[in-house]
Computed example of a mutant assay.
Amino acid sequence: MQNWYKKINNQTDYILRKIKEHPFINELMDGTLPKDVFHFYINQDALYLSEYKKILSVTGVKCSDEADTQFFLDAATGVIHVENALHNLFLKQETFNPVPSPTCELYTSYLSRIVHTHSVEESLAAILPCFTIYKQVGDYILKHQTNTIKNPYQNWINTYGGEDFAKSVQKAVEITNKHAQTASDEILTKMEMIFEKASKLEWMFWDSAYNKESWKL
């Protein structure tokens, strides 16, 4: 399959549309998102990324091509540097909560299970939505936002709509497509299911942040 990502991206477009329509994204775009909601999101994002960088590293080690391995190890390092800068900017005067929300816990646990117990192809399908959806959301916001000068979240928006992040996303897509080309039909089906579930978890992450999700007990 020459372009596995193009196919699965079309199949899961309904999820991306729901993300773009979410009030979190729309209020982030125009700068009206309540600060306590954004703080909750950044806090949970920090917890998510502390696990995601490990997941990227494990995925990289599973790749047989040294260049692919290096890419994911570099991506894990990039997560540390770029996200730490954003979190220092937005969390520096706030209290950090070390407890992941139920959705954050679910998402990171799911990714960790896939990369530790499934094939490299399935691992790539699991981690890819975090790359591609953030890129698509960043591009969408930059294209449609009207408040760029006074938007308190512009630094966050620029990070995911920037050229450096776009190059990283494209490389992750290329690596996944390469592995899909030689994957069996059974593995391809599993890759599609995993990518779709991870994409749904992306929507759930935005939604849980908007509602400041907490444990019921």
Rank of each mutant, 00 (worst) to 15 (best):
I55A: 01
I55F: 05
S57F: 11
S57V: 01
V58A: 08
V58C: 05
V58M: 11
T59W: 06
T59S: 04
T59V: 11
G60Y: 02
G60V: 02
V61G: 02
V61E: 07
K62G: 04
S64L: 15
D65N: 14
A67Y: 14
T69H: 12
Q70N: 14
F72R: 06
L73A: 10
L73T: 09
D74G: 08
A75S: 13
T77A: 15
G78E: 07
V79N: 12
V82A: 14
E83V: 03
E83M: 08
N84C: 06
N84P: 03
A85S: 13
L86Y: 09
H87F: 11
H87M: 09
H87T: 05
L89G: 00
F90G: 04
F90Q: 06
L91G: 07
Q93C: 00
Q93F: 05
Q93W: 04
E94P: 00
T95Q: 08
F96P: 05
F96D: 06
N97W: 02
N97D: 12
N97M: 04
P98A: 01
V99L: 13
P100L: 05
S101L: 07
S101M: 00
P102V: 07
T103I: 03
C104S: 11
L106K: 13
L106C: 10
L106M: 12
T108I: 09
L111G: 03
L111E: 11
S112H: 15
S112E: 13
V115K: 09
V115E: 07
H116R: 15
H116L: 14
H118R: 15
S119H: 02
E121C: 10
E122Q: 08
E122P: 05
S123F: 05
S123G: 13
S123L: 05
A125C: 02
A126E: 11
A126M: 05
I127G: 01
L128G: 08
C130N: 08
F131I: 03
F131M: 04
T132N: 06
Y134F: 10
Y134R: 08
K135N: 12
K135W: 14
V137H: 08
D139I: 07
D139W: 05
Y140P: 00
Y140N: 11
I141E: 07
L142E: 13
L142H: 13
K143E: 15
K143R: 13
H144Q: 11
Q145S: 14
